[in-house]
Every structure is written in C-alpha cells, then in structure tokens.
C-alpha cells in the first residue's frame, strides 16, 4: 500500500466524520461511519407486513431510525424480530408496507418491486448474524475484504489496509490469516462485525449477535458493539441483553405477535413499562427462575 493510497482512502471518510470522537485511534479511523450522526432520518419503514403461509408474522410494523441512533428490538421468541431485520436487509420480501432510506427511493412492497430493489437495501445496510456465517473457506482477512473488493470494487491494497485497521480495532490483528474454525466464538463474531463494517453501510443490523456464544464470550462482543454505538454508528440490534440495551439504546421497541407493543427510551421501558405484555416479558427475562 502506497502512502498516496492511504490518504485518498481517508479523504472522503474524514470529511463525513462525526465531531471529534474521544478515541485516540479515531483520526485515521475506518470504523468511523460514512455520515455524521446529525439526527436526520436515515430509515423510514411503514406498515411492514409479512406472512409465511397462514402465519402472520409481521402485522404493520413502523420503524424510524435517525442517523447515529441505536434502536434495540426486544421481544419473545417468534415475535418477528429477525423478520424485521431481514426485511430491512432485503433478505425477506415483505408482503406490504414501505421502506426508504434517506436519499434513496421508497420501496413499496404492495407493488411489484423495481429490479435491483434488494440490492438497493443491501447497499445501505449490513447484517451481523446470530451464527456469524463467516465463510469457512476464506481466511479472516479474505472474509472481510470480499465485499469491498468483489462488490464495491475497492482496490485490493486499499481493501486490505482498511480491513487490517478494522481487525486491529477489534483486537484481531494477529488473526488475519487464520481460518474461522481456528477462532473462538467471540472472535468469530467480532470478525462477523468487521465484515459488516468493512462495507461502510449506513445502517448496521445485529440479530442476537451474542446469543450463540458461551456466556464468558458475550462481553467482548457487546463491548465492540457498544464502542461502535458510541462512535456514532447507526444500528438496529435484536438482543436479549437488557444491560446492553439500557446502556447503548436510544430507543427500545418491544415486539410481540408481529406488532410493536411499546416503544420508548430504555429508562422508561425498563423501569415503567405501560403495557402489561412488556412488563411480563421483562419479568421473565430478569427473573427467569421465579
């Protein structure tokens, strides 16, 4: 990698960087999101509906995410949380409703979708899966540069430089040439996060990123996500880690039976939920043995 590569890579990033992150590594920081958190709307989803056969999984979900915001989705198993994320990422096609990203077209799922609609969604967001879904035949580095290099056509040297910096940030610099099976679950999931970050999406989607991990590995992954949140990344996180939600979330949505039952600031939802269903769910999570 030549020095000129390096500076051209930083140019556009630096321009859109959030105001002085406290992190000392931040100035040349590929972790910095493309856009500054300025509270302008990034994602607007209205009336998202989805059925699998007779099973009505989502019944009119509305979701607004502003730039820099962290939205946490909680709710019992089967309530439709994963389906919401997958719809936002174009992995699932809703039966109705609209999704639009700032500066992009509004997709109306009640109508025939324009060609490439899925790609338009994936262009804006990237998903971190519960089961990391790393590519087992590629090294850590190859996993991370695959998207930038093959899809976004970033020059290889630049893709490698950015990927290395990202891996360094999550403490995996020495693992860049390892294969996924050589890593612990927590390391695998951190690579999964880096793979998503390397695409520089506007929106990060996390689907229970720690629920497949051994308890002692949960912390290292959550703290990476928390750091990203602090740095101004916009994200929607499905999780059962209420401690994380309380610390990191700007807004918490409680879903049940395919609807958003209640939404609000974490302080409000966790301490004085207005809905009975929310209260019961929180009780069950906080005191599972009672």
């Amino acid at each position: 990698m030549s020095p000129s590569d390096d500076s051209s890579q930083q140019g556009p990033d630096a321009a859109g960087e959030p105001p002085a992150p406290s992190d000392p590594l931040a100035p040349s920081d590929p972790l910095a999101p493309k856009a500054a958190p300025d509270d302008s709307p990034l994602l607007t989803a209205r009336g998202i509906r989805k059925s699998f056969g007779d099973n009505e999984v989502l019944r009119s979900i509305d979701l607004d995410v502003r730039r820099g915001e962290v939205v946490v989705l909680i709710g019992p198993s089967g309530s439709g949380k994963t389906t919401v994320l997958r719809s936002l990422n174009g992995l699932e096609t809703p039966d109705g409703g609209t999704i639009s990203f700032a500066g992009g077209p509004e997709l109306d799922f009640a109508k025939p979708l324009p060609k490439g609609a899925r790609f338009a969604l994936r262009d804006r967001s990237a998903m971190v899966f519960q089961q990391h879904n790393l590519f087992p035949h590629m090294t850590v580095l190859q996993n991370v540069i695959e998207g930038p290099q093959r899809v976004q056509r970033v020059p290889k040297a630049q893709a490698i430089a950015e990927a290395s910096a990202l891996l360094d940030r999550v403490g995996l610099a020495e693992k860049r040439d390892a294969y996924p099976f050589e890593l612990s679950g927590g390391q695998q999931q951190r690579v999964g996060i880096v793979r998503a970050l390397a695409l520089k999406p506007d929106l990060l989607l996390f689907d229970e990123p720690t629920s497949a991990l051994d308890p002692e590995l949960v912390g290292e992954v959550l703290s990476v996500i928390k750091e990203l949140a602090d740095e101004g990344w916009t994200m929607v996180v499905v999780t059962h880690e209420l401690g994380f939600a309380r610390q990191a979330a700007d807004e918490v949505l409680f879903m049940d039976g395919g609807v958003v039952v209640e939404r609000g600031a974490p302080g409000d939802i966790f301490t004085k939920p207005t809905e009975e269903r929310t209260r019961r769910f929180l009780d069950r999570i906080l005191r599972p043995m009672d």
Partner: peptide, 18 residues
C-alpha cells in the same frame, strides 16, 4: 451448504451468481 452462507453473500451485496 448452509442457507446462512447464501445470506452472508447477499448481505455483503453479492448477486446470486456471485
């Protein structure tokens, strides 16, 4: 090959063929 591998390809922006 697990379905998650297809989805991981899609989420990084790849087409079906890629």
């Amino acid at each position: 090959v697990p379905k998650g591998q297809w989805e991981a390809g899609y989420t990084i922006g790849m087409s079906n063929a890629t």
